[in-house]
Design a protein around this nucleic acid. Structure first.
Lengths: 184, 184
DNA sequence: GAGGATGCGGAGTGAGCACTCCGCTTCGGC
DNA sequence: GCCGAAGCGGAGTGCTCACTCCGCATCCTC
C-alpha cells in the first residue's frame, strides 16, 4: 500500500468519526470526504459501502473507549471506578449509538464491531466484579444490565436536551439502584 | 368539510401511527397512503408536510397514553400505580420516540405536541406525588427524572433487542433506585 | 337530479443520496 | 530522472423520497 493511501485512509476514518458524532449517521459521505480533504472516490475506494465506513469508525471509537476504561480500572477503588466508568460511557454512548444504530437496523454489527465491543465488555466486567466483591454493589446485576442502563441514559439525552440537574439526579437514581441490596 | 374528507383524514392518521410505529419515521409517505387506502395527494392535502403528519400522529399517540394513564391513576395504590405507569410508558415509548425524534431534530416539537405531552405529564406528576406521600418513594425526584429514565429504558431496547430477564432486572434497579432514600 | 364546489389519485418534478468510472496525478523501485 | 503501477478527484448515474399539479370523480345543495 502506498504511503499516501495509508495516510488518506486514516484521515477519512478520523473525519468519519467527527462527522457522524456531530451530524449522526445520516450525514452524507460527501461531507466526510470534504472534512478529510479528499474526493468521494477516495472514501469509497477505502470503504466500499457506507456500512463499511460506519463499521470501521465504530471500531475505532470502541477501541478508544476500551483504552479509557482500562485506565480508569487500574488504581481506583472499584466502586468509584465503576461510577466513573458509568459516567464516561454515558457520555460517549450517543456518539457510539449514532454509528451503531444503522448497522443494527441492517443485518446487525459485523465481526470487527463485535470483537471491539467485547474488548470493552471485558474491562467493565472486571470492574463490576471487583466492585461487587466489596459488598457495596448488588450481586444480581451483570455487565448486560449495566450496558442496558447506560445506553438508556445516553439515548435519553440524545434527543431532548435535558437540564443537567435532571440528568444528574437520574444517574444518581440508577447508581443508588445498583448499590441497594435487592428488595423483595 | 365534506364527509368523505373527514373519514379519509382519520384513516390517514391511523395508518400513519401504524406505519411509523412499525417502520420508524423514515417510512415513506407513500406507504402511509397505501395503508390508508388513499393516494399520496390526499395525504399531502390533509398534512402539507411530513413534519405535519408526524406531529398529528404523535399527538394522537400521546392522547391515547394520557387516557391509559388516567385509568391507571384512579383506584390503585399509588406506588403500584407508579410502577404500572412506568412499565406502560416504557412499553409505548419506542413508538412515541420514533415519531418525536425527527421533530426534535428539526426545530423541536410544535405547540400541539407540547400540549399533549403536558396532559401526560400532569397525570404522571399526580401519581408520583401521591406515591411520595406514602413515604415509600424518594422525594428528590420529579416527573422530569421519571420521564428521562423511562425514555432511556425504552430507547435502550429499541435497537439491541435485549433478553427479557436483563430488561426486567434493569427496570428493577431503576425502581429500587426510586424507592431508596437517597444516600450520601 | 343537476350543477358547482370540494376532494381525489397518481404521474410528474426536483433534490439529495450512495456508489461508479475513468482520465489524470503522484508515488516509488530501478 | 523514468516509467509503470497505484491512487486520486469529481462529474456522472440511477434510485428514493417529499411534494406538486391537474383532469376527473364524488358529494352536497337546491
Amino acid at each position: 500500500m502506498r504511503a499516501d493511501a495509508v495516510a488518506n485512509r486514516r484521515r477519512v476514518l478520523v473525519a468519519a468519526q467527527e462527522v457522524f458524532a456531530e451530524q449522526g449517521a445520516e450525514a452524507s459521505t460527501e461531507e466526510v470526504a470534504r472534512r478529510a480533504g479528499v474526493g468521494t472516490g477516495t472514501v469509497f475506494r477505502h470503504f466500499p459501502t457506507k456500512r463499511d465506513l460506519l463499521e470501521h469508525a465504530l471500531v475505532a471509537h470502541l477501541d478508544d473507549l476500551a483504552e479509557a476504561a482500562r485506565a480508569t480500572a487500574s488504581g481506583e477503588d472499584p466502586v468509584e471506578a465503576l461510577r466513573t466508568l458509568v459516567a464516561d460511557m454515558a457520555g460517549r454512548a450517543p456518539t457510539k449509538l449514532a454509528m451503531a444504530e444503522p448497522l443494527l437496523a441492517d443485518d446487525g454489527l459485523g465481526e470487527a464491531s463485535h470483537a471491539a465491543a467485547e474488548r470493552v465488555r471485558v474491562v467493565v466486567a472486571e470492574v463490576l466484579e471487583r466492585a461487587q466483591e466489596t459488598g457495596r454493589v448488588r450481586r444480581d446485576v451483570g455487565v448486560d444490565e449495566i450496558h442496558f442502563l447506560v445506553r438508556g441514559i445516553a439515548q435519553a439525552q440524545a434527543f431532548l436536551p435535558v437540564a443537567p440537574e435532571v440528568r444528574r439526579r437520574a444517574v444518581e437514581v440508577l447508581l443508588d439502584g445498583l448499590r441497594c441490596a435487592p428488595r423483595s
